[in-house]
Design a protein around this nucleic acid. Structure first.
Lengths: 303, 303
DNA sequence: AGTTTATATCTGAATTACAGATAGATGGAT
DNA sequence: ATCCATCTATCTGTAATTCAGATATAAACT
């Protein structure tokens, strides 16, 4: 049956323009290459080389099939490479859960480095609702999480701060709050607050008492963004997802009277104790911890 | 050595969750599958299945490598499929030369149909200067050409009209010509004409005496477009490449007093007699000839 | 416990792959 | 024109492999 080496013979012969040369390079007899290619031609029912001359010359069919043969060879190489990578304890897949609203821009260089360091590890990034984060990690769906820091994590979870995410209060540009030079608590309470969280997680979790009595919840920050843009109320949203619309004047940033308007929320890397991180996951975690703080302030013009 | 069938055994076993079932489906003995996979594991130096239970279960490594194995199988399938396609006289590659300025929009459906009818034929589209077209076809670099019709073609070329391309005279929106309700020859002669052709081809070829005494030539229509937009003069350009900029008001269409401003130039399919078209090329030519005329009037609001 | 169905392993047979040798052919050098 | 080096196809016998069948054993199910 078709053997990988036979494809190698084909490709080498095509590249070198000689069966003998290919045989020498493969450390085999010339006859081996000759019959291997002949068999390939029988199996495929095409002439791969024109043998009328002293040296074989690729036919049109051979030239067209050469990339395919190379593809098979590459596939085999990758199979082996990935296998040895895994036999050395490197996992084949790493899933990172990055909470919605945390920008991946600060991570782009890191991800680039990952692809070159762990070429054989496929990377998956999921962006769950904060509520789902724990489940994802617990059931092993994701190995490593990035989320806005909480007061406490359930037992079994490890966490370390790795950076921060800037959250900014905004409204639509034509919202009454946008006209105020200083926004006081009393002003906020007059209008609807839009919270990028599911209701249930917001009620159980964290520190924050909402600032307004009228609150809408939406699971998806982008949804909240849309609602804010449509004038439904105000929200505190990650800078990364509103930067563009602040620039276009679509949205307006509020200026809090009672505190710094820019709210810096810590970003934690989270993982479970039970599931040991693989080599690639470990690497990713270390690089996250080493990340210089200034990569987190993107497009910065802090108010 | 690693045999394609062994990878198939791996994939089938993984899919069916059973070596025996895989063996049955392959028409082989169970022991063959068992040893094939065992050998794969030795070669790759990884455990692919966890055999502690009654049925083998993929390990993490096995799951990670499964897509790779599938890739190899697919590669092999494609190799064979393409080979049989070619053994039936279908060429492996078709190169079409489409003259710069002819829009490919009317052809999109046709190209889509091509990809499904000739899945194993790779398609290449080059967009040469009209001057280069003949050379490309003659030397076999391209099998089929689409170009603006000429009065005569060199011997050895076949040609058939397949459609038309709309050419429209334009200037920048703030060009003096743009203010005229009717543009006469005398007006045109006052300003620089920009011709999307190399000087040499324009001098040797065709009917057209340029309308203005001051002429600039540029090989690339997009370059001409830029020059026109910058106010360097006026040009007759294919509607397809200026449609957007007409819409944004960046460019303005001129209204000829002496003829229809919209100049419909025929598009010819051109090929050489010597190089017989393959099955796919023949198909493409036939479909081009059958193309209903109305696909050629795109975004039409004819003046 | 008994039955069924699974996998690993062993053995011998059949197939296949290969090295080495041979013959014919080609292209370049003399 | 002749010779030489080198190419490829093919033949032959041997070595390696692949595989089916048989056997042992383990797991799930009745």
């Amino acid at each position: 049956m078709a053997n990988i080496e036979h494809f190698r013979a084909f490709v080498l012969a095509a590249e070198l323009g000689s069966f003998s040369a290919a045989a020498r390079q493969m450390g085999k007899a010339q006859s081996a290459v000759s019959t291997a290619i002949a068999n390939l031609e029988i199996d495929a029912d095409v002439q791969l080389f024109d043998r009328s001359g002293r040296n074989p010359v690729l036919t049109a069919a051979g030239a067209a099939l050469l990339p395919n043969a190379r593809g098979i060879l590459l596939g085999n190489q990758e199979f082996l490479a990935r296998a040895t990578s895994m036999s050395q304890g490197v996992e084949g897949h790493l899933c990172m859960a990055i909470e919605q609203g945390i920008s991946i821009k600060p991570l782009l260089d890191l991800l680039r480095a990952f692809t070159s360091t762990f070429a054989h590890v496929s990377l998956e990034i999921v962006t769950p609702d904060p509520t789902d984060m724990a489940a994802l990690l617990k059931q092993g769906r994701a190995e490593l999480g990035l989320m806005i820091e909480q007061e406490g994590y359930p037992t079994g979870f490890q966490f370390r701060g790795v950076g921060y995410s800037r959250t900014v209060p905004v409204t639509a540009h034509d919202h009454p709050l946008a006209t105020l030079a200083q926004v006081r608590h009393a002003d906020l309470r007059k209008y609807r607050e839009l919270v990028p969280q599911s209701r249930q997680s917001a009620e159980t979790a964290r520190t924050d008492r909402r600032k307004s009595p009228s609150v809408w919840y939406a699971e998806n920050p982008m949804l909240v963004l849309e609602l804010v843009a449509q004038g439904f109320g105000w929200a505190e949203l990650p800078y990364s997802i509103i930067a563009d619309r602040l620039r276009t004047g679509d949205l307006a940033q509020l200026n809090y009277a009672f505190q710094q308007s820019d709210i810096l929320q810590g970003v934690d890397a989270v993982w479970t104790e039970q599931r040991a991180l693989g080599v690639a996951g470990q690497w990713m975690l270390n690089k996250l911890l080493e990340l210089p703080q200034d990569v987190w302030r993107e497009g910065e013009q802090v108010a």
